[in-house]
Design a protein around this nucleic acid. Sequence first.
DNA 1: GCATAGGTATAGCCATAGGCTATGCCGCTA
DNA 2: TAGCGGCATAGCCTATGGCTATACCTATGC
Lengths: 303, 303
Amino acid sequence: MATDHRPGLDLEALRVLTLVADLGSISAAARAEQISQPSASKRIQVLERQLGLELLDRRTRGAVLTAHGSMVTGWCRAVVEATDALVTGSQALSARAAEQLSIGASQTIAEYLAPSWLGEFRRRGGKPTVQLRVANSQGVIAALRAREIELGFVETPTIPSDLRSRRVAVDRLVLVVAPDHPLARRRNPVSRAELSTMALASREDGSGTRDTLHVAMEHAMAPAAVELDSNAAVKVLVSSGSYPAVISELAVANELRDGRLVEVPLRDVELSRSLNAVWRRGTRLGAAADQFLLTARPRRGRG
Amino acid sequence: MATDHRPGLDLEALRVLTLVADLGSISAAARAEQISQPSASKRIQVLERQLGLELLDRRTRGAVLTAHGSMVTGWCRAVVEATDALVTGSQALSARAAEQLSIGASQTIAEYLAPSWLGEFRRRGGKPTVQLRVANSQGVIAALRAREIELGFVETPTIPSDLRSRRVAVDRLVLVVAPDHPLARRRNPVSRAELSTMALASREDGSGTRDTLHVAMEHAMAPAAVELDSNAAVKVLVSSGSYPAVISELAVANELRDGRLVEVPLRDVELSRSLNAVWRRGTRLGAAADQFLLTARPRRGRG
DNA sequence: GCATAGGTATAGCCATAGGCTATGCCGCTA
DNA sequence: TAGCGGCATAGCCTATGGCTATACCTATGC
C-alpha cells in the first residue's frame, strides 16, 4: 500500500482469531492456516491495535480469549461464515461444465441457501465439484429438461408432472415496510382485500416470489408500483420508506431481526411455500446428486 | 506479502463492489471510498480474477452488474454487514469512559443485537460515542445502580422494582440438536417432563439463558451434562452430536436456516422471553439514551 | 534444581500488493 | 467534430506482511 489511510481489516486475521479461539494457541492456529507462528502472532497484534482491544491473554501454555476477545470472536465468526458462503457460492458459479455434478436454482434459493448447502456438502466429504446455475424457476425446469443440469431447486408452487420433486425447505413470504412507514404501527392484521389494493414494490414478472404471491391472491392484485429484478433492490426501496413489499422471509431475516424493516402481519392470506428439489421423472439420481439432496434436506421443528 | 500463497480476499474490494452496484460506476465508488479510480478498478479486477467470474459489464457510461455479479454482490453485502457489526461492536467495547453515553448489555443481546443497534443509532445521526459494557444480567443491573451505565439491556425474566423497563425485543429459547441426533427425527413435540430428564449442554450458572430455562421449568431440571460459558461453545458441542441444548433463537438462527442444527419442537414449555431495556427509576433518560432506546424499539409482526 | 519443551514476541530481511499520477482509449452527447 | 465521462494500463514507490533466527518465559520432568 502507498500512503497510510484508515484501518482496512484483514479477513485472514479474523480467521486466525477464530482458530486461536478454537485451538487454544496462536501456534496451533498458525499451523492450521499454514503460516508461520510469527505471522499469526503479528496478525493478531495488528487486529488488536486496529480494534483498540486486547483480545488474547497470552499465557505460557497458550492463549485464551479475554472477555472482549470472546465478543469479538463471535462477530468474527459471522464474517468468516459470510466469506465462506461468498467463496463457495462463487466457486460453484465459476465451475466449468464437464464437471461432475450440475445443479440449478432459482434466485432466492441460490442466494440464501445454496452456499450453505455447498459448504455442507463439501464438509461431509462430497467429492465432485458442483456447478451452480442460477435462473428463475421456469429456467431451472427448462435446463432440467434439456439435461443441462441433473438437479434443480425451485420456488414455484406448481411443478410440471414430468418432474419428480421433494420438499427441501419451507419459506414464507412476508409483508414488510420501513420502520417509519404508517403500516409499521399497525396492530391488527392486514386483510387480503386490503393487500390486493396496495401499490407494492415487486419483483419482476416470472420470478418465483411474484408467482407465489399472485397465486395466493388468486391474481386479484393491484398493479405493482415498481418492478425490480433483485431482492436487494426491493429491500433498498422498501427501506427508503416509499412502498411496502411482499418478499421472502429468507431475504429479510437480518433486517427484521435488527429492525431495519418491520413485518406487517397478514390475516387472510397463506404465503407459506415449499422450496422443492426437482429432477427428471424416471431418471435415477447419481450418487453425488443423491448426496447433495440429502444435504439440503428439510429442517424440522416449527418450519 | 512475501511468497505468494492462496487468494486471501480483500474486504475493501468487497465493499467497493457493493458501492459499484449501488452507484453505477467504478469512479463513483472510488470517490465514495476516498481512493483513486485506478485503485478501485484494480481491486475489482483482482476480485474477479480470484473468484474466476466476470462481475461487471463495463459500459462507456458506467458499469453494471452481470448476472454472476449480482449474486456475488448479494453475498458481499452479507460480509460487509457482518464486518460493520464487528467494527461498530468493537468500537463500542473500546470506547473509553468519560464518553457521552454508556450502556450495558447481557451476553446474548450484546453479541447479536447491540452491533445492529449501534450502527442504526449512528446512521440516524446519533452523535455521541456509545460505550458498551458486557456482563450477565445481574452485572448489568449492578452497573446501573452504581451509575456506571445509563441504560441497560437484560434477558432476565425478573426485573427489580427500583428499575424501570421497556420491552425492546422478543426472544425464544429453542431446543436444538445436531441433524444426525435421534431427536432430530422426532415428529411429536417433546414434553416438559421429558425435557426435564435430558442431559443438556448448558450455559454457565448466572447466564440469562440458563435462568430463563430454569424459571420456565420451575427448577425441575436434570443437572447439566456440560457447562460452557459461551453460546459459540454450546453450538460447537451440539453440532458434534453429543448433546441437545436449549439456547436463544438469536444465537442459532443461521444454523437452523441452513440445517447445521435442527430445532426440536416443545409442547408443555413456554420459552419465549422479553428482552428489556432497563434504567433507574426516577431518572430522566438523557437525550442520547432516549434516542438509543428508540432505535432499539421492538419489532412488530409475529414477534 | 536444572534442563527441556512448548508457547510467544522481536529483529531484520525481502518480495510484492496495492496506492497514486499520468496517460490512452472508447463511445456517448452536445 | 470536439469534448467529456468512464475505464484500463503503465510506471513508480512505499510499507505491509511473509519468513527465519533468536530471545524470553514458565510449566514439567528427571
